[in-house]
Design a protein around this nucleic acid. Sequence first.
DNA 1: TTATTATTTAAGCAAATTCTTAAATAAATT
DNA 2: AATTTATTTAAGAATTTGCTTAAATAATAA
Lengths: 126, 126
Amino acid sequence: MKGNNVCIREQADPVQISNCRDKIAANERSFSQLSGILSLSGNEVRLKILYLLEEEGRLCPCDLSDILGMSIPAVSQHLRKLKDGSIIEAAREGQTIYYSLKEEHLKVLKPFFKYINLQNLKKQAL
Amino acid sequence: MKGNNVCIREQADPVQISNCRDKIAANERSFSQLSGILSLSGNEVRLKILYLLEEEGRLCPCDLSDILGMSIPAVSQHLRKLKDGSIIEAAREGQTIYYSLKEEHLKVLKPFFKYINLQNLKKQAL
DNA sequence: TTATTATTTAAGCAAATTCTTAAATAAATT
DNA sequence: AATTTATTTAAGAATTTGCTTAAATAATAA
């Protein structure tokens, strides 16, 4: 960011700006963590995967690929991102690997599932 | 997606898979809408902007640029995305344009602000 | 031990994201 | 009318994302 091209508003409130800077600085970690979770959930395929895991308890890459109509490597790569973000966990059972939601970030995710199901109810009420 | 490279599990439950497909199909619009909001909020800069608008009521690009320490065009382009997504709205006042949160999607956003403030309280409790 | 099944990994590519810089609007001031 | 101020827009570059295809693991079955 260059110094010029900057507007120095006369009406700007330096106290407000300073307070805002403090608020941002005080929550830097939270913004980083939360935006991480949100950007993972903000992909339509991954949001569907999370919703399905909530509904079904656990699912394997093979079934997810079947349900979502996309290739297994594509699904697997989404699952890895979610796992890297500590949003889901894997449990092996023979050759099959079952993925499920981790408790850790469920509080952030639950409202999303509620939103989806609420929209569905509204639709059915018509 | 190619037909081969597909695993046809013997233990796969065709009824479960069919039900899952139905659930996804029934909520296609909701997934699209919600993932849109989440991907907008999933950028750290935009999440900060949304948080600041919630805290302050309204802010202009100039002040946001100052608070966040980034160029005005960069901020302006984030604001446009948020406006295109109906998450914020603009109100002109002379040369200054004030942005604020729209009521429409506040229900989805509110938990994020609560999360940030809760983390902050936890930190202060130490 | 060889083949099959379920999954992951890696390389490559097209598209999307996010910044920078420079130029264009648009309102207020001189 | 010309200048300043606040903001947007556009073009370009670096990075990230999300798929495809092919090859690599890893467990089970023949």
